[in-house]
């Protein structure tokens, strides 16, 4: 497939997506304010998917590893935070958790990445599967496996917007808005870190070409520790937001599995791709669940994201913003 066809398909995809999102209104099965609530709700959960996906993209770019353990890291971070908060004030607990994530990154680099350097990507992927199991078991062994409430003082009561414009207004959860703002801030900080600092530059160099970066004296191993630590930070933020929304529990790790179709949609190597992919998946699954679900027996949220990603893979395997590469022989 050449570039033009590929671009046209992408445009067609967005057009279809817009139609899909608008369709419930056009066919009269939804009122506008309700529909808008669904769309906003979808975009909000999309922000959270995007957050987990950013962790995946970070690690993939810097170490070529598709990190299946990102979900387990989210759970581990949230669990650590919530249990340490029982003993220490929030700010201190945050520091302790962050230290734990850095330690985890260091251990992963030492015990997994370094011995497996230059292995095929799929081997590394399977290794992160093992890491995921280990972190899950370890986290729950140390911190327990109940459901814990994470209260960091986010206001719970929903806000009603545009009351004057529509009858009844639009219901928006304040928690979601704060979460979105936090996610936005994190992304901005990461972008600044990558663009403006020396470490950020080194990270980008490593992402571009491992060997070239190494040959000019960038210490690969240290970069990996930093990247996995940053991914740990992203996991912590995702864990805080998810955790205060749903409670800290094992199922967090399954929600994080949703980040896989997100990166497939957005492309493995693209930060903006992770964000837009997250929004598309969040929006798509909410709208389809609310308006299509009833016809199919409900619960289609469980597979919608995956099937969307699967269909997408067939037409544009490199994702929306990913890099194409040519097999050379």
């Amino acid at each position: 497939m050449n570039a033009a066809t590929s671009r046209n398909l992408t445009i067609a995809f967005f057009v279809l997506l817009t139609f899909g999102a608008l369709a419930p209104m056009a066919f009269g099965s939804a009122r506008f304010p309700q529909w808008l609530e669904v769309v906003i709700g979808g975009l909000m959960s999309g922000v959270l998917y995007a957050l987990v996906a950013i962790g995946l993209v970070l690690i993939f770019k810097a170490s070529g590893v598709f990190n299946f353990a990102q979900g387990a890291m989210v759970l581990f971070a949230a669990l650590t935070l919530v249990r340490v908060m029982e003993k220490l004030p929030f700010a201190l607990a945050l520091v302790v958790t962050l230290a734990a994530m850095v330690a985890l990154a260091w251990l992963v680099e030492r015990l997994v990445l370094r011995p497996l350097v230059n292995q095929e990507p799929i081997v590394l992927f399977m290794a992160t599967l093992g890491v995921a199991y280990f972190i899950d078991g370890f986290g729950q062994l140390v911190w327990g496996s109940d459901i814990y409430t994470l209260d960091i003082g986010m206001p719970k009561e929903p806000k009603i917007l545009l009351e004057g414009t529509f009858e009844g207004g639009i219901l928006v959860s304040t928690e979601d808005v704060i979460a979105a703002v936090m996610a936005g801030l994190l992304v901005a900080v990461l972008a600044l870190f990558f663009q403006k600092t020396g470490t950020g530059r080194a990270l980008r160099a490593v992402a571009d070409d491992h060997q070239a970066a190494q040959s000019i004296g960038i210490p690969l191993n240290r970069i990996w520790v930093i990247v996995w630590s940053v991914a740990g930070l992203v996991a912590l933020v995702s864990g805080v937001i998810w955790g205060s929304k749903l409670g800290v529990q094992f199922s967090l790790q399954l929600i994080a599995l949703k980040a896989l179709p997100v990166v497939i949609l957005g492309g493995f190597t693209s930060m903006p791709g992770a964000i837009i992919g997250g929004l598309i998946i969040g929006l798509g699954e909410k709208v389809s669940e609310v308006y299509l679900g009833p016809y199919l027996g409900g619960g289609i949220e469980n597979w919608f994201a995956y099937v969307l990603a699967l269909i997408f893979l067939l037409f544009r395997p490199e994702g929306l913003f990913g890099e194409r590469h040519i097999d050379r022989v």
Binding site: M126, A127, L129, G130, A132, Y133, F134, G137, Q140
Partner: peptide
Amino acid sequence: AMVFGALIV
């Protein structure tokens, strides 16, 4: 889970 994970790696 920990043992399986560690063994895989």
